[in-house]
Design a protein around this nucleic acid. Structure first.
Lengths: 228, 228
DNA sequence: TGCCATTTGGACCGGATAGTCCTATACTTT
DNA sequence: AAAGTATAGGACTATCCGGTCCAAATGGCA
């Protein structure tokens, strides 16, 4: 891929994540990427639609390299890996200062009902993401309850994260995502064989003298699922 | 409120939920509401922005009457009410055939970073929603663990539901939302004092001969949190 | 009757938008 | 040197969009 092309894609990705696809004009992209004119842009992309598709591709590749890759780390316990992945999602949002959402969630909300081409591509993104989590869950199956439904659980994790990122953006408060991430880890831990013990641990948090309604307690010590 | 005004608001709400705010033109709204011309529209609304604000208001009022009201039903056990509310969200999505998302989530994704006026209004919507759940959790406190953080839990519930609706729309499959709704109920049940017992129950689902990886098992019998 | 809000129907404006076309330099590869 | 590709810059079209303005008809109400 030529540098120029990548440069255009990156410029477009930034703008789209800030304003959405529809509200990002080709002229905006040209200006952001410091191109000389429209003909230059249309030399690389045959239409704005194609640009959108390729931006989505690129965003997913980035996400696969920097995020999903964590889920495959062979030297780390699978459930711990899942915790690290969740942390990475939080860290990414921190980087953007609680602004911008998930590039997938944003596009999904904007285009899912309006543009079938985008819908199927976003569906594929979510499917590949879910598939990675499913593999991890399969790896972790010795530690998981026998009745854990990997399909359902993987969807739940993605939905919770997407919803959390959205709320964080609306409230402009990163602690929203942090709290949900911590709870999500506890939810996953609930599916482990020693979950009853964890439960007891959480309940015994009363003894730690934590004020009622405070974030924290023993639960926070479980933020990496089983190792903190 | 005049009939005409309401009619315009409803027409606009439909279009916006299908295409988003930016991609819905005033001319579209006029046609959908069967008005005669632009002057007629601008007789009722001073700008498209104002229309957007009032559509959001109306959507929230509807949601408060038909959804949030369930959370306040005085004759039903609070946690059971929460289960019914979650069911209502699912039912609403079924009505729309897995199309359209949450009117709040959609607007949030589209406008949160781009338009401060919308952002603060959507933030207020989420806050009022969360506040209702917090009240319910307060009511249910005798059944809940002492260290339950109502602020965090209420946010988690909203984020999971918003994320679930989004994924459902992308996958065009209502069972995504159904599965997440069921898991969400289990997550809430995890915070109850007898959660250890529930845990044991879930684990014993092995004995019921359920195939591995299937949705269901004992968990599904818990779909109304503690009564099914 | 006179007043006022409502409704109808359309012309119009300024600006943005996606996309095309054309010309003219560079740079690179054969 | 020739040929293809990249860069530059601008003119142009057709369409859409938010918003304004105007003229006329309709209807209820004081």
């Amino acid at each position: 891929m030529s540098d120029r092309r990548a440069q255009i894609l990156d410029a477009a990705a930034t703008l789209i994540s800030e304003r959405g696809f529809t509200s990002t004009s080709v002229d905006d992209v040209i200006k952001q990427a410091r191109l000389s004119g429209k003909s230059h842009f249309y030399h690389y992309f045959k239409s704005k639609e194609e640009l959108g598709y390729e931006v989505l591709n690129r965003q997913f590749e980035r996400f696969a390299e920097r995020g999903l890759a964590i889920l495959r780390e062979p030297m780390i316990d699978p459930l711990e890996r899942l915790g690290l992945f969740i942390d990475a999602v939080v860290a990414l949002q921190v980087e953007h200062g609680a602004r911008r959402g998930s590039p997938f969630g944003n596009l999904a909300a904007e285009m899912a009902d309006a543009h079938e081409g985008f819908r199927v591509r976003i569906e594929a993104v979510f499917e590949r993401w879910a598939s990675q989590i499913r593999s991890l869950l399969w790896e972790a199956r010795p530690q998981l309850n026998d009745d854990v439904d990997a399909v359902r659980l993987s969807r739940f994790i993605i939905a919770a994260l997407e919803g959390a990122v959205l709320m964080t953006r609306v409230k402009r408060d990163i602690s929203v995502l942090e709290g949900i991430a911590a709870d999500l880890k506890r939810f996953v831990a609930m599916h482990t064989r020693d979950a009853a013990g964890i439960q007891a641990g959480i309940q015994s948090g009363i003894q730690s003298g934590m004020p009622n309604g405070m974030s924290g307690g023993l639960a926070s010590r479980r933020e990496s699922l089983r190792e903190a």
